[in-house]
Amino acid sequence: MDGKVIIFGGSGYIGKQATIACLEKGWNVISVSRTGSQIRNTNLIDLVVDFVDFDYSKVSENDCVIYCAGVAHNKYKNESAEYANNTLPVNVATQLKDKVKKFVFISSSNVLGIKRKNKFNPDSYDPIDSAAKLKMKTERALLSIFENSKTLLSIIRCPMVYGKGAPGNINMISKLARLPVPFASVKTTRTMLYSKNLTDLLTKVLEFDRPPKVLLVGDSQALPFNEMVAVISSSMGYKSKQFKLNIFFLRLLLTIIGKRALANNLSNDFLIESSIKHDRFCWSPTFTHKQGLVESFNRERER
């Protein structure tokens, strides 16, 4: 790459993984966040600054931007989420229009709804909750901003991203996987995305001359939920202890304890075609779902 990679949200989980992947390519990286990435590398400038205070005049037309900032996992509500997940990315994109080579926005597959099997229409929205509606709103704004711009826009729609140290539901599932849990009858299959598969795609998008505008990605060979829990258990060195419980009562229990999203996911398959073929752009995930889970939770890697 001739220019720098500027990562907005470099202190978050995906931002850190993207930073590491770009540095491993030997690229110069600027991480922009309010807390810092805590990564040390001679090719990294770790800026601790609000996005509104970033000096946009110093970017160049060969630079590429990855925008993966935002609030997630129900940390904030209403106005804070609107500002972080819509207002900020739209403002950053407006500032960078025609000033950088590429703008890559990390979005969510939740903009498509909770039920989907190997069907993909980039214009088909069916957001499942307020967070997904904000992602949809931001996607539409970005598509409008960059419609006639020399800056190339790529939107990457991700299902649940997991990996070593990942936050969110996958972290909760890994804790439950050590205990007797009522998941033996849950055979719902939902595509997920290993962080190393995501960063591999990200670097390919940055390297490719004209990448697709919208990409829907996931691991290959998605596992049913009960098998996924068993793989996580064994990877951590535990014997899987799953027992059967009627799915209706399981969903009710999860809803009562405030895990409505997980309850909905246990009732609906969501399968994504893992490989991408678009004109000359071709990509397939390096890791299968099982391989990603083993790498993420292998107890030997925790030492």
Rank of each mutant, 00 (worst) to 15 (best):
I6N: 04
P180E: 11
R40F: 08
T191G: 00
S174G: 06
N298S: 14
R178F: 03
N85M: 05
K175Q: 10
R116L: 13
V92Y: 01
L252T: 13
M172H: 03
A261P: 01
E79T: 07
N197Q: 08
K25E: 15
L271R: 15
L112S: 07
T189D: 02
N148S: 12
K4P: 02
L96Y: 01
K115A: 11
L254R: 09
L96C: 09
R178L: 09
A69L: 03
A177I: 05
K25C: 15
N85F: 05
Q17F: 01
L152F: 09
V231Y: 05
P127F: 02
D129C: 02
M1E: 11
S149M: 11
S240G: 06
K102H: 12
L152S: 12
V59A: 09
G12A: 04
R301T: 14
A69Q: 01
I145G: 02
I272H: 04
S11I: 12
V205S: 01
V294W: 02
K101N: 07
M228V: 13
L23Y: 01
V5R: 14
V217R: 13
D123T: 13
L252H: 07
S240W: 00
K290P: 05
E139K: 03
L250C: 07
Y13L: 08
P211Q: 04
F208N: 09
T199W: 00
V100H: 12
M172D: 07
S130F: 10
S296E: 15
K133F: 07
S233I: 05
P180R: 13
A21I: 01
V29R: 10
D126R: 08
A141C: 14
Y238W: 09
R210F: 08
Y13V: 03
S37W: 01
R190M: 05
K115H: 12
I128G: 00
C64A: 14
L47T: 12
Q291D: 11
A21F: 00
D279W: 04
C22V: 10
D129F: 06
V92D: 06
L266H: 04
D269F: 06
V111P: 00
Y13G: 01
V92A: 11
H289A: 12
R301F: 14
K239H: 07
D129Q: 03
N62L: 09
L250M: 14
K175F: 03
N148H: 12
S124C: 07
I66S: 08
L96S: 04
L223Y: 00
T151V: 11
F287G: 00
D129K: 02
L252I: 04
R301A: 13
S144D: 15
P127V: 04
G3I: 07
V65I: 15
V161C: 04
N43L: 15
P180N: 10
V49R: 14
P224E: 04
E82L: 08
L179M: 12
E295F: 00
I257K: 07
G9R: 06
G36H: 01
V71M: 02
F8P: 00
L152C: 06
S33R: 00
S275G: 02
K119T: 08
D219S: 05
I272T: 05
Y238S: 09
L142C: 04
N85G: 02
T188S: 13
T42S: 14
Y162F: 13
F270E: 00
K213A: 11
P285R: 05
L250V: 10
V229I: 15
A261E: 15
A184Q: 13
M1L: 13
K259A: 15
